[in-house]
């Protein structure tokens, strides 16, 4: 199989994923009466990336073949899809409060922090990582938990409702420490001379794609794991860093906005 063929054919088209995405989109459209704003772009992007993470060739490779594909999926589901979805929600109205209602304790930043960091660490305990890569139902559980924990983690930073957010200067240590925790795991995975997720060391090649990966792409199991670790270490940290920059932007912008409001009131 060539890479080209592989990329064209290796889509899951999993009906559940497809249905979930379509239904979420319908609900979103109905709730805002099909009037899309700039925010909706974030939501749509989140949905599309969620679909790609779960249905594209990445998903197929992540199920027991390539550790780096698993890591890409993992990072999409924890670090990218949840904040995009949250940013897409309208700030006011009933469904701006959905996350808050679902998670009464979710306002506690400590719990939120441990959710985000836990999502990284717990699913990379070798036994759990193996189980999720080889067992379908564990994989589903993993997917849901990652999205859920991701939403919990990002809510204090990007929640559409301003009341739910941490103050920008408190958000910076929140994100920075999460970045350190994530990097440490990434460093461990990159340098570990043993398989962090042993399944990926000797994948069962059901689809006949292993020759393409090993010879065509030149990915040995060790290089594959290194790339996985590095993905968690470097690009993931850039996401946290990007969020920190957003917070600083907000911090410096805020007084002007407050002043504008004040001035408007005076008039």
């Amino acid at each position: 199989m060539t890479t080209h063929e592989f990329l064209l054919t290796a889509w899951d088209w999993n009906p559940f994923v497809l249905a979930a995405c379509v239904i979420t989109l319908l609900l979103y459209g109905l709730s805002c009466r099909w009037k899309f704003s700039g925010k909706s772009f974030f939501f749509l992007a989140g949905l599309v990336l969620c679909f790609l993470a779960l249905d594209s060739p990445v998903s197929l490779l992540a199920r027991g073949t390539l550790f780096s594909a698993h890591m890409l999926q993992h990072l999409l589901l924890v670090l990218i899809v949840p904040p995009l979805l949250l940013m897409g929600l309208p700030g006011s109205g009933a469904h701006g409060q959905i996350p808050g209602r679902l998670l009464p304790w979710g306002n506690n930043p400590l719990i939120a922090w441990f959710s985000g960091v836990g999502a990284m660490w717990i699913w990379h305990v070798p036994a759990l990582c193996d189980a999720a890569a080889s067992n379908g139902s564990v994989h589903v559980l993993q997917t849901f938990s990652l999205l859920f924990l991701g939403v919990l983690f990002w809510r204090p930073i990007v929640s559409a409702r301003k009341e739910d957010r941490l103050s920008p200067l408190a958000g910076i240590p929140y994100l920075f420490t999460a970045c350190v925790a994530c990097s440490l795991l990434g460093i461990w995975i990159s340098f570990a001379p043993v398989g962090v997720c042993p399944v990926y060391m000797n994948p069962v090649d059901q689809l006949g794609i292993l020759p393409m990966i090993r010879n065509g792409w030149g990915l040995t199991p060790i290089a594959d794991q290194q790339i996985g670790g590095l993905l968690m270490w470097v690009p993931a940290c850039l996401i946290y860093l990007g969020a920190i920059m957003v917070l600083l932007g907000r911090y410096y912008r805020r007084p002007i906005k407050e002043m504008e409001i004040k001035n408007a009131r005076k008039k």
Partner: peptide
């Protein structure tokens, strides 16, 4: 802000 970015 770029100072923070450099530091991290």
């Amino acid at each position: 802000a770029s100072t923070v970015a450099i530091a991290i």
